[in-house]
Design a binder for these strands. Structure first.
Length: 594
RNA sequence: GCUCCGGUAGCUCAGCGGAUAGAGCAGCUGCCUUCUAAGCAGUUGGUCGUGGGUUCAAUUCCCGCCCGGGGUACCA
């Protein structure tokens, strides 16, 4: 970053030998507020204590050192804020003229191996907007952690067994007429989802009939009556047959799951997701049992009078059951098993789960259990909890048909983006090229929208308002890149080496350099918080700064001196590199033109 | 009840110890024979839920209260 800050730091430490600065301490600067004279601000309130003087003395010393610094053009002190204006040459030297340096600054000094699990769909229905948020958060956090220099292993854990899967299978047996995705021309996960809906409709019907015939049952919940229904018992029986390995059930299960996996593969391809490994719950759901035995042996867990195995996690988390009295395992038992398996498979330094915030409690318990089992790495586990996606009409509910389907949403947004493309420059552009462009824009808009929110906030998705390509959106940033691409194409992809950056002296040009200076800090914070929303915000600001530059500073127009043109071309190139790097970090593509 | 998350402009959200609280959308006003108007400029709009406390400094930290959502399973 800025050389003057290094010099200021050493200057202060020399001047105040009594200073108690932590190792590696360095004075930092922030953007100066718009209405103040200055580009950067050094806040002396923040480090006055470190150098052990009063804030106004710290500020005075700072101003004195900076006034004599060759990079500094002007200094102004307000209270303990020291506002600095840099000389053009120094400003660009430390920022946009050195893109590799800018990018390298964002890399971590201590790379780690992360294992991140996300998506985790069920194979009884297609993915919806909630999954899209999960997928987007997972892939972007993974990408961002890689971008700052870590090794990242991305895994999926597919819930491919259980009563909900059997429901789709029962409905297929009863109402399926042996259809296949090919025979009806439907994506496999959608076809299976249809049967899941059919099952629930048939169940509701049967429940209604039963309640009509048994007035004493009207008060009971659907869950309580589930096993009283024929179709409920059928699903239960099928689950038992599945666990017993009954051939015709396994065969049906394999066939229908195969359809769903094909469908998911397409959804993931559209989003640009590639998992390093996909774990299947059907292969992991029994894993936890021997760990429970080990826990009993070590005394971490205890056996209750009725035979159930439990663990007392203290006053806050309470007593957790790990094995029922009948010896069957519960959700957390499986999760213990898969967690240990993932650890054994990859030995990560840290594991991340991208899972909805309704499971915060579950993960607290899981982590506590792992500690109890003596896993030294248990304090390096992180539940990346994210909020629901709600619609203006309320929560999304599969049963009530109020979900926004992922594939349909991609399709709809692509259509809208395509229409927007057609309104613009379509001269001589082939249809498939236009479609490819629309896809990049649509997916960019969607991912950017989802990442703009802090993960933990509950999102309100209003299709009418949320599907936008203007304003604070992904396409806004992509558009800035496209404008730069256009300039560079018109200039014949010029060689800009040796450009004289000190010729760039307008407020718009300097503003871009000032924004660029903070890229590494933005990445660092995103990685630390496992939250890309700061990067999203940042890219909007850089794109905005570029659009202002675009308006105010002609590059190719007649009357721009050749040397200035070259410098501005170099600037544009660097800005595009920055924006592209940022978007790619968010797993968003950049179209050549828009 | 206990617990977690949220309450900031008409709407959707940033800011989370620092200088006069921001953005986008919506509304109003301008700017396309000039490198792509998916753009730019201007403008309207706020007792940062509320009452205390800590601090040189609080939207930001602590405590109480009010409102909304999640969790509180031997479901996943």
């Amino acid at each position: 970053m800025f050389k003057f800050l290094d010099d200021l730091t050493s200057g202060l430490l020399q001047k105040f030998p009594a200073a108690a600065a932590p190792a590696g301490w360095r004075v930092s600067a922030e953007r100066c507020p718009e209405n103040m004279a200055g580009e950067l601000t050094v806040n002396a309130f923040k480090f006055a204590r470190i150098i052990k003087v009063a804030p106004d003395q710290a500020a005075a010393a700072t101003a004195e050192i900076l006034a004599a610094h060759p990079d500094v053009a002007a200094v102004e002190t307000v209270k303990a804020f020291v506002n600095v204006t840099l000389k053009s040459g120094a400003l660009f030297r430390d920022t946009l003229s050195d893109v590799p340096g800018l990018f390298a600054a964002g890399r971590t000094a201590s790379p780690r191996r992360y294992l991140i699990e996300y998506s985790a769909p069920n194979t009884n229905k297609p993915q919806h907007l909630g999954h899209v948020r999960n997928n987007t958060l997972g892939m972007s956090v993974a990408s961002m952690l890689k971008r700052v220099g870590n090794e990242v292993i991305q895994v999926n854990l597919v819930n491919d067994r259980g009563i909900h899967i059997c429901k789709s299978m029962i409905a297929y047996q009863r109402f399926g007429n042996a259809v296949t995705p090919e025979s009806v021309g439907k994506k496999g996960d959608h076809l299976v989802g249809d049967f899941y809906v059919k099952y629930n409709a048939a169940l509701s019907e049967e429940l209604a009939e039963m309640r009509a015939g048994h007035p004493e049952w009207t008060e009971k919940s659907d869950e309580e009556l589930f096993l009283e229904t024929g179709i409920g018992r059928a699903a239960q029986q099928m689950l038992q047959d599945w666990e017993a390995g009954k051939p015709e059930v396994i065969e049906l299960w394999k066939m229908m799951n195969g359809w769903v996996f094909d469908g998911f593969a397409e959804t993931y391809r559209t989003m640009g997701i590639e998992f390093d490994r996909t774990y299947l719950e059907s292969q992991t759901y029994l894993l936890g049992k021997d760990i429970v035995k080990q826990g009993l042996d070590s005394g971490a867990f205890t056996r209750r009078d009725d035979g159930a195995v439990v663990c007392d996690l203290g006053p806050k988390l309470g007593v957790k059951v790990l094995l029922r009295a009948d010896g069957t395992s519960v959700y957390i038992t499986q999760d213990l098993g898969t967690t240990l398996k993932k650890y054994a498979d990859y030995q990560p330094d840290s594991m991340i789960w991208v899972v909805g915030d309704e499971q915060i409690w579950h993960f607290q318990v899981l982590f506590a259990l792992l500690k109890k089992l003596g896993c030294a790495w248990a304090d390096k586990l992180h539940h990346l909890a994210y909020g629901m996606v709600n619609l203006p009409t309320g929560r999304m509910k599969s049963r009530e048909g109020t979900v926004v389907d992922a594939d349909n949403l991609f399709e709809e947004m692509t259509e809208l983006a395509l229409a927007a493309c057609r309104e613009r420059n379509t001269d001589g552009i082939a249809d498939d090229e236009l479609l490819a462009r629309a896809r990049v824009i649509a997916m960019g808009a969607l991912k950017f929208m989802l990442l703009k929110f802090n993960p933990k906030t509950t999102i309100m998705f209003d299709p009418a308002a949320s599907i936008r390509f203007e304003g604070d959106t992904g396409p806004y940033v992509q558009y800035a890149c496209a404008r730069i691409g256009s300039i560079l194409r018109k200039a014949g992809d010029p060689d800009t080496s040796g450009a004289d950056w000190s010729l760039l002296e307008t407020a718009e040009e300097k503003n871009l350099a000032l924004w660029a200076a903070f890229y590494s800090a933005v990445l660092e914070q995103a990685a630390e918080r496992l939250d890309c929303s700061g990067l999203v915000e940042y890219l909007l600001n850089v794109a905005k700064a570029f659009n202002q530059f675009y308006r105010e500073c002609p590059v190719l127009s007649d009357g721009v001196p050749p040397e200035l043109r070259k410098a501005r071309l170099a600037l544009a190139k660097s800005v595009r590199a920055l924006l592209e790097d940022g978007l790619h970090t968010l797993t968003i593509d950049v179209p050549d033109a828009m």
